[in-house]
Write a protein that binds this DNA or RNA. Structure first.
Lengths: 121, 121
DNA sequence: CCACCTAGATGGCTGAGCGACCTACTTTCG
DNA sequence: CGAAAGTAGGTCGCTCAGCCATCTAGGTGG
């Protein structure tokens, strides 16, 4: 088991919707492949993303034209499917990323515990 | 049209999981009722939360012991179900809220477009 | 009277993350 | 040599929560 205590293990729901942006961001950093994206996301603190989540997600990203893939035979180990971000993908990352940051900021403020009733009311 | 341009209309997936915290935060500000929570959330920039989302969510919160409800007949208008946050609910808001802010911060950084706009550095 | 607003609630649909499982290739070790 | 483990990709059914449509019901105004 590679689930050390350092694993944040965010609630699954929280990853919904933003995980594709996170994956897109990782791919946008440079050509990479699925398995490494998974380990990279874990290293970045996103938790261990499961294969059953990651691979369909990558397929969706490719289907949407945000990434393109190339299969290359493995010199050591099995073949890998390398992914690169398309200009459209980078544009989407930029736009939706900004939107996500706005959403994250808004909700972060919202769920900030109120200074116990009595003050501003 | 109930979708004015001023409506942020965040992607539905983004609300997943954090919406209950947002509702809990609103309730924690003072006793209120479902319908008003909806309008408050909209005013706060969360978008118009649908009844089919909000009422089951409140039922879940109550079922989890985060809020308690009291029915009061309406002096003007239909009866209202008033909600208050329980100590357990406030504790959860504090803990999960902090966790959400950490998650929001992490992902905000992650999806921030990489400065290397032109090179596979 | 009817339309509309307020207020709460239900039920089916859908999409995405999860768990479990599978194929295939390579390296390591008993 | 052969089993096990690691790497790499993939599929399938489950579940959960937000969405839409719809319903009940009281109050208000044209």
């Amino acid at each position: 088991m590679t689930t050390p205590a350092s694993n944040p293990a965010w609630p699954a729901q929280w990853l919904r919707g933003v995980l594709d942006l996170a994956v897109l961001a990782v791919v946008a950093r440079g050509e990479t492949y699925g398995y490494r994206i998974g380990t990279d996301l874990a290293a970045l603190g996103l938790g261990a993303v499961k294969g059953g989540t990651l691979y369909p997600l990558l397929a969706r990203l490719e289907d949407a034209g945000d990434v393109v893939s190339t299969w290359r035979e493995g010199e050591s180990g099995p073949g890998r499917k390398w992914y690169s971000a398309t200009p459209a993908g980078r544009a989407r990352l930029s736009e939706e990323g900004a939107r996500w940051r706005a959403f994250a900021h808004l909700t972060s403020d919202l769920v900030h515990e109120v200074p116990t009733a009595g003050g501003t009311r």
